[in-house]
Amino acid sequence: MNPVSTVRAAARTSLLDDFSLEMTGKDVPKLEEARDTIPQGTRINVTFLGNEDLELRLAAARAVKRLGFVPVPHISARRLGSRGDFERFLAGLRADGTSDSVFLVGGDPAVPEGPYADSLSLIDTGLLQEYGVQDVGITGYPEGHPAIDAGALWSALRDKHTALAAQPLQGGIITQFGFDVDPVLAWVEEVRSQGVALPIRIGVPGPAGIKRLMTYASRFGVGTSASVVRKYGFSLTNLMGTAGPDRFLRALDAAHDPDRHGELKIHFYTFGGLSATSEWAARFRKDSAA
Rank of each mutant, 00 (worst) to 15 (best):
D180Y: 02
L198A: 12
S101I: 08
I38F: 06
S82D: 12
A150C: 10
A91W: 01
R158E: 15
L49V: 10
L58R: 08
Q134V: 04
I202W: 01
L31V: 03
G273R: 02
W280V: 06
E22M: 05
P39K: 09
I123A: 07
L67E: 12
A276V: 05
L236P: 00
D17C: 11
K286Y: 12
L264D: 02
G97H: 05
Y141F: 15
A186L: 02
T139Q: 12
R192D: 09
G50R: 12
D257K: 04
S275Q: 04
E22H: 04
V181S: 01
Y116H: 14
F177Q: 06
A147C: 10
S235P: 09
E33L: 14
T237I: 09
A276G: 12
S275W: 10
V64C: 07
A281T: 11
S235C: 03
Y131W: 06
S275E: 03
G206Y: 03
F248H: 08
V46W: 00
P115D: 10
D182R: 11
R8Q: 12
A147R: 15
F271W: 00
G233T: 04
P109Y: 14
T13G: 13
A9K: 07
D246A: 10
A117R: 15
S288Q: 03
T224S: 11
I138C: 09
P168L: 03
I148Y: 03
F69G: 13
A281P: 04
D36S: 14
E87M: 09
L264F: 00
R94V: 08
S121V: 13
I123Y: 08
S227P: 02
G206Q: 07
D36Q: 14
G151N: 05
P109S: 13
L164K: 02
D96I: 04
S5W: 07
L157S: 00
Y131C: 01
T162W: 07
V136M: 00
R219T: 15
S5V: 07
T270D: 05
R8V: 15
D259S: 11
V28S: 01
D17F: 08
Q176E: 11
L274A: 00
D17T: 13
L15E: 03
T42A: 06
E263Y: 02
A289E: 13
R250Q: 11
